[in-house]
Nucleic acid binder design. Sequence first.
DNA 1: CGAGTGGTTGACCACAATCAAGACCCGTGG
DNA 2: CCACGGGTCTTGATTGTGGTCAACCACTCG
Lengths: 246, 246
Amino acid sequence: MSTQRGHLKVVSEVCGDAIACHNCGIYRLGTPLDSTEADPRLLERIAKNRRQVKRGDLLYRVGEPLNAIYAIRYGSIKTYLSTVDGRSQITGFHIAGDPLGLADLHSGHSSTEARALENTSLCEIPIDHLHQLTKDLPALQVQLTHLLSQEVQRLQGLSLLLGKKTAEERLATFLITLSRRFARCGYSSREFNLSMSRNDIGTYLGIVEETVCRILTRFQDDGLIDNQRRLIHILDSDRLAHLAQL
Amino acid sequence: MSTQRGHLKVVSEVCGDAIACHNCGIYRLGTPLDSTEADPRLLERIAKNRRQVKRGDLLYRVGEPLNAIYAIRYGSIKTYLSTVDGRSQITGFHIAGDPLGLADLHSGHSSTEARALENTSLCEIPIDHLHQLTKDLPALQVQLTHLLSQEVQRLQGLSLLLGKKTAEERLATFLITLSRRFARCGYSSREFNLSMSRNDIGTYLGIVEETVCRILTRFQDDGLIDNQRRLIHILDSDRLAHLAQL
DNA sequence: CGAGTGGTTGACCACAATCAAGACCCGTGG
DNA sequence: CCACGGGTCTTGATTGTGGTCAACCACTCG
């Protein structure tokens, strides 16, 4: 983390947006584990292609050939998959700095659907471009396994949540986790705006919209949070973390 | 698949057990995507270290330094993680050919606990050994990302199951998926022995033991399966797959 | 043969889903 | 500026799926 700070200037020159890029997947993709120096030329090549998606737009749909991977510069994306009769499960909310589509690299077609929760800017890295990059810089491949490992661990945690936690514990886990992610992005961990609806939160946590509302109200009554629609204040993160079983 | 068959002789010489090794993670680890020839010397080096664990034994526990990854030769292993108050969620049942511990490579300590469901034989590949191997053969690193991608997709499917499926759909999905995995290992897809208890199945599917029993009995009454304790016959895989929402 | 583990079944209960109605917010157009 | 409409959020009443508790059965192994 502290070693990464040193590259901020270089990175921001390439990306044009210091905050987005400091935490951006581009940056993470371009800074292999065993390299202490980011290669500016590499970053330039990675960060070249941009793509914008508007709130509600589909980035890619399940089953379609996925010929690029993405890294979010700013905004947020939900990824989800569905049963044949249309019930869907959101598998992740992705914010600035998160990579997208990594797990579909090997199969070449998308295993999830990705939709923008708000107007979002991404870096697009075509797959053949990426193949060339990994040839030039083998350490990039190591970085890909690193990112995939984190994704595996995240999904293991989600499975524990969906399989064993009560609705209350799920909401508490959600709020604490989101708070910590924002903190890592340099945003406030105590006050933030949700880009997703109550329905989305439920679809992620394996509960329904109404249950999300009821429990948020209960948290507010108990003085754990201040809940003004999409604006959330964390008032007692310790008690919340305890509720979350974290 | 058909190209892999050609290496069976070489592989079995190294592993000493054709069935186990044909499907073994060793083999998969040693056969990178872009290589049409398995390197016998590489396989020798990978397959050298063996480890046996007895039914009920712990292979590794959560949080402990994990200084090797594993590939199962024969037997089966469950991996699971737990809430602070002791509820646990099984995140996977692993059989012959499956790799273990890949997602923990980057952090160096185990994110799950692994316990043998029956007497099991593994290939142990120390991490520094693996690092040396990936240096000699960069394509091995590509193979690691490939395996991790599959794990991500498997866990996405598990999330859909845990978040959105009914108990009946969960059991049907479980049976169909297991049947297909056995088929890929060269075992019968219509008749097999479960190495895990009813309790384990429930702990994996996010339901309790009793619910597992009730639904298995119902499946039997409906002529979908023949259920003799751990011995399962699939009688109507079409209807089962339909129930599973697959 | 008896103890112990794992599996099955039943009765009852609780958490969260469903169904329904209303409140709030924001953008749009008159 | 206000009225309208649609989406999102909230709250209430009722229901149902699967959990809990408990007893019993069946197979295995010492």
